[in-house]
Amino acid sequence: MSVLNTLKRLLYPVTLLTLVALLSIGLSILAIYKGFALESPAIIYPIVAVPTTLFILCLYTIDRFLVNRIKYCQLMLAELVLLMGGYLWYGYSSSSTDIHIETDEDYIFVLYDATENSMDNFSRKRLFGKEWLVTGNIVHLNPSLISRNDIRILPPENWMGIYEENGKYFYQGGSISYSYKLRSRQANEYKRTQQTYIDSLLTLVLR
């Protein structure tokens, strides 16, 4: 009976944070399982999920303190505003501008030489993000975008490893900034990471 009374005190009356806390605990358990059961990159799941759940549980502790001290409707309204604000903040802070590459080639060039507004090629993704699907291994972007840290170049999903080189290529009296991505684990990978080889590819691409 004491266990039931404890659960009742912890869960009743049910608020929005009650549902969020329970969902967060479930997702954390799933994240921990994936983090240790799958390949090493999946370890990021529990690293992100567990601290987030602990933060939500701290908020839930405050919720349990307030639930019998202020009106229920006021608490629900405050939590609704809090959750909406948290959702918008997370969506904005985690948003990105993604360029998805689909190609059968094993290298990608992103050339910052376009004269038009490259952002016109992107479509909206969720609330704040943008994405652009490119079929081919050459992407032309406006030079003004080179300093944007939110732009992600996403190669084909079957690329298990990536070599990346950023630099400038001197061309027709000027220079073009570029990003070179090579699908690694190739037989001639070392040769294809040398600057002379990269320059020769750029000469063919810009011909």
Rank of each mutant, 00 (worst) to 15 (best):
M1C: 06
V3S: 07
L4K: 14
T6A: 15
L7Q: 07
L7V: 09
R9H: 11
R9N: 13
R9T: 11
Y12D: 05
Y12P: 00
T15G: 15
L16V: 03
V20H: 00
L22S: 05
L22D: 04
L22K: 01
L23M: 12
S24E: 07
S24Q: 11
I25N: 06
I25Q: 06
G26L: 09
G26M: 07
G26W: 02
I29Y: 10
I29L: 14
A37C: 03
A37I: 10
L38K: 13
L38D: 15
S40T: 15
P41H: 04
I44C: 04
I44S: 09
I44Q: 06
Y45G: 01
P51Y: 08
T52P: 00
T53D: 02
T53A: 07
I56C: 05
L66H: 02
V67D: 07
N68I: 01
I70H: 04
K71M: 08
C73N: 07
L75H: 13
M76W: 14
A78H: 03
E79L: 07
E79G: 04
E79R: 07
L80R: 00
L80S: 13
V81E: 00
V81T: 10
G85F: 12
Y87E: 05
W89E: 07
G91C: 03
G91N: 14
S94P: 01
S94F: 08
S95L: 06
T97K: 11
T97R: 13
D98I: 14
D98F: 02
I99Q: 05
I99N: 02
H100K: 10
I101E: 02
E102A: 14
D104C: 00
D104I: 12
D104L: 12
E105H: 09
F109A: 01
F109Q: 03
L111I: 06
Y112V: 15
A114N: 04
T115A: 10
E116C: 01
S118T: 14
D120I: 07
S123R: 11
S123E: 14
R124E: 10
K125T: 07
K125S: 14
L127A: 11
G129A: 09
G129D: 11
W132D: 04
L133C: 04
V134E: 10
T135I: 10
G136H: 06
N137F: 06
V139H: 02
H140T: 11
N142D: 14
P143F: 10
S147V: 12
S147C: 00
R148W: 03
R148N: 15
R148E: 15
D150Q: 12
P155I: 13
M160W: 10
G161I: 00
I162Q: 12
Y163M: 02
G167E: 08
K168S: 13
Y169A: 07
F170P: 00
G174Y: 02
K181M: 15
L182V: 10
R183G: 00
S184C: 00
Q186S: 10
N188G: 02
E189W: 01
T193C: 05
Q194P: 01
T196A: 12
Y197S: 02
I198G: 03
I198L: 06
S200V: 06
L202K: 06
L202D: 03
L202G: 05
L204D: 15
L206N: 05
R207I: 09
R207C: 09
